[in-house]
Design a protein around this nucleic acid. Structure first.
Lengths: 283, 283
DNA sequence: TTGCTCCTCACGTCACGTGAGGTGGC
DNA sequence: TTGCTCCTCACGTCACGTGAGGTGGC
């Protein structure tokens, strides 16, 4: 019979761990002294301890380890648990590799800019939404201002007329496949309740309504500053997508988080804008 | 000013998380209503939230994230934190890959044996120890029994004579480079206190004493059963080492955990024996 | 008045590490 | 008697999830 200290040395585990395993019942000492409470382990409990350590090391929780050891478990059950673990580990590795890339990238941007980067680019999923919109071709970028004001003005007036209250911010969609400065295919829209969509049908509104599907993977960044700084942020985002082996999988969107972009006929001088681009991983 | 629910939707985090970030001070709401306690967030807090999420996702703890954000941090400090994280992730990936291999192997052994494997093979480090020993060449395996009895008998008698008490079990070392059945170069020894080593010098004992160095990586398994089943366990262990791209880096050892292997002139019929082989990774 | 949103505790999670305070065996 | 080992609580870890119990605004 071994005392807990000796047994812990044989098994290369802490005394505390053995006490813990006793407590949760995964490895009870072969004998406990009635008066002193001293735990006594027998050497033939060592294989069990080693099996516990092994299963723990490959990532099973102690309750899973218990299932494994209390052999109410068929061989097939063991197999499927191991296969699940295998897939989980494979996933963990992929996630870790992604993290690694993101760290490296952050390091690069610090290296080249000599300071912390201006844009944080993350990935998230987006929900679906309904919006009322107006689409047009803008001949040149520097006219964006005027055209957008015009479109949003129309939308707000129309919404007012048919008595629909927006439930979300302004969203500008860029339909051009490539980055360009001329002939921009732009749609301006405002999020409305799903339930209000039929109003547009029945009243033959000048506005279109569209249902935008949810997206699983959207690269995004939140920009804050004047509107003409937005271009740089878009370029950063596009570069990021390329560097990280993603491909563009939908329409570039600009969401005016800080409210309408135009007040009293002129563009607001400082805004908070979220840029979104749906993406998918290149195989 | 946004209510907590709206802000949590923009940031794709739970309300509870925002409350938590408020509590630990990493992201305090721009305004708190004095009477209701309602938290009010401003949209320009969104970039900070996104940066928190980003740093969290690449594996920093919230206290590390705080350090990052409370910019008492120089660019060099940021760099070194990122580099450390980079190394940590690289390590995590390697560890995960090792786990993966072990899972796959366990799956294989279930597949081929149709049941849970008999031997758990793990890796551990071992401490250094002193031992008194006797070495000899055993002509053929089936004589091991007799030769070992003889050696251990000599050792026990000698220890008794010079009044040294063993502090550890019997250890048998196999010096042959390759697995063989004839001319086994075997050393039998018993662990003794370091302090007793000089006794052997002064009294010119027939026993050698040796100091065995600690080993960083030792593949081991605990076998229990009759002595003649040991061979299979050794073969398993050797196979495992090969399959896992390790190379043997020291002497194979057999440790008699259940006590002396010979009692009253004959070998004990059931024993618990740890097999150890120091290893190193093949590059 | 009824939902919906917000609030503050406070327990639970997981596998132990780390004292505090005390006892048993040589 | 002095170390050394053992014992039992019980708090702390980390980043929230999940109620419980209650309030404010439309």
């Amino acid at each position: 019979m071994l005392k807990i200290g000796d047994f812990s040395k044989l098994g290369k585990v802490s005394i505390r761990m053995l006490r813990h395993y006793d407590q949760i019942g995964i490895l009870k000492p072969a004998h406990i002294d009635y008066y002193t409470g001293y735990r006594g382990y027998s050497i033939d409990q060592l294989p069990r301890l080693n099996r516990i350590i092994f299963l723990k090391e490959i990532g099973f929780s102690l309750s899973e380890v218990m299932k494994f050891l209390d052999n109410h478990l068929s061989v097939d059950d063991m197999k499927s648990m191991l296969i699940k673990r295998q897939k989980d580990i494979e996933n963990e590795i992929i996630m870790a590799q992604v993290s690694l890339k993101r760290v490296e990238q952050r390091l690069n941007s610090i290296q080249s800019e000599g300071e912390s980067p201006k844009y944080d680019i993350n990935i998230k999923k987006t929900e679906s939404f309904a919006y009322a919109c107006h689409r047009t071709i803008v001949p040149h970028m520097y006219q964006m201002d005027f055209y957008c004001f015009d479109m949003y003005d129309k939308i707000y007036k129309e919404l007012n007329k048919i008595n629909v209250t927006p439930i979300g911010p302004e969203i500008t969609m860029y339909y051009n496949e490539e980055y360009t400065e001329t002939n921009l295919d732009v749609e301006a829209g405002i999020i409305i309740p799903l339930s209000s969509m039929q109003k547009f049908m029945t009243q033959e509104s000048i506005l279109k309504t569209r249902l935008i599907a949810e997206e699983e993977n959207v690269a995004f960044t939140v920009y804050s500053g004047p509107f003409d700084g937005l271009e740089r942020a878009i370029i950063e985002l596009l570069t990021w997508i390329e560097v990280n082996d993603y491909s563009i999988n939908g329409t570039i969107r600009e969401i005016h988080l800080s409210g309408p972009a135009h007040l009293n006929d002129k563009v607001v001088e400082s805004a908070i804008i979220e840029l979104q681009i749906p993406i998918s991983k290149i195989k």
